[in-house]
């Protein structure tokens, strides 16, 4: 690992050219997944391509009807953005949950998505708000919905030579809000046993007119749950609707058994978290 060559391109096109010419070269963002994997012998990249000197990949901006988060923006910078916190509190919560203060200073949103852990905290939160990945390759840019970005544990829809440039979140409409909850055995510094993100819109009379529900850590990738959303739309987000959200989430979960939780436990808890996240999102939407 010591002798792996290091390069820090200054532009997207330069990075794409470097990645396109060497299939084993690896993007280095915050390194909090990659360096651990390389030290553990899981990966052997031929080159480090540090993308943190590319202006297009850095920072948060609210432009027109969307919020743009550069892929190489660290979690701490995202969470500190007051407008992002106000517009998409669930996404802010999910970024704030990643690791410790120190990890927050490094771990990027792009790295969280591209590492494609089934338990990545930002993924369900981003799916809930309908976020899109902006990807650059030698042929130009394309967009991939976040729910289609991870294709399996550690696998993404990125083709060889492609780079994740940014994530675009549509600015929430009136009376629309989101929330993200996760369960870990302790209060800090652990990987999600279960995660759930919900975004919903309320009509003037308090009826839910639109909803998106996503769950994480209970299947090979985070899942967007049509049925749980359908349970919310048309309801007043009352106990009955919330019970149906919980049942839909439990039914959709395909978790594994491991030291962090059994299958039965994860299936039960994913329902509880989906229901609670929906209730929080509804309260927030009501206040808007």
């Amino acid at each position: 690992m010591q002798s792996i060559p290091y390069q820090a391109p200054a532009s997207v096109s330069e990075a794409v050219a470097l990645l396109g010419s060497d299939a084993e070269a690896r993007v280095l963002a915050g390194g909090t997944d990659l360096l651990v994997q390389v030290r553990g012998g899981v990966r052997k990249p031929s080159a480090w391509i540090d993308v943190k000197r590319i202006p297009d990949l850095l920072g948060v901006s609210v432009e027109g009807d969307s919020i743009r988060i550069g892929a190489a923006t660290p979690a701490a910078v995202i969470f500190e953005h007051p407008e992002l916190q106000r517009l998409v509190p669930g996404v802010a919560e999910a970024t704030d949950l990643i690791g410790s203060t120190q990890i927050q200073g490094r771990a990027t949103l792009g790295g969280n998505l591209c590492n494609a852990s089934p338990a990545a905290d930002t993924t369900p939160a981003l799916i809930a708000v309908g976020a899109q990945c902006i990807v650059a390759g030698s042929g130009g840019e394309r967009e991939i919905a976040v729910e289609a970005f991870a294709t399996g544990p550690g696998q993404t829809a990125l083709a060889q030579g492609e780079l994740l440039v940014a994530v675009r979140i549509p600015k929430p409409a009136a009376r629309t809000a989101d929330a993200y909850l996760r369960l870990i055995p302790r209060t800090e510094m652990d990987i999600a046993v279960v995660g759930a993100g919900v975004a919903l819109t309320l009509g003037d009379d308090g009826t839910c007119t639109q909803a998106r529900v996503a769950i994480g850590a209970v299947a090979p990738t985070a899942l967007l749950l049509e049925e749980a959303a359908a349970a919310l739309v048309g309801s007043r987000v009352d106990d009955d609707a919330l019970a149906r959200v919980a049942a839909a989430a439990t039914a959709a979960a395909r978790p594994i058994d491991d030291k962090r939780g059994t299958i039965a436990y994860r299936r039960k808890v994913v329902g509880v978290l989906a229901k609670r996240a929906a209730a929080i999102a509804a309260n927030r939407a009501q206040e808007r």
Partner: peptide, 19 residues
């Protein structure tokens, strides 16, 4: 291994020296 990098707290084991 905590250090400050451009005013941000980071773990220096998660930073490559050339960065």
């Amino acid at each position: 291994c905590s250090v400050m990098l451009d005013g941000r707290l980071v773990p220096s084991c998660m930073v490559l020296a050339p960065e």
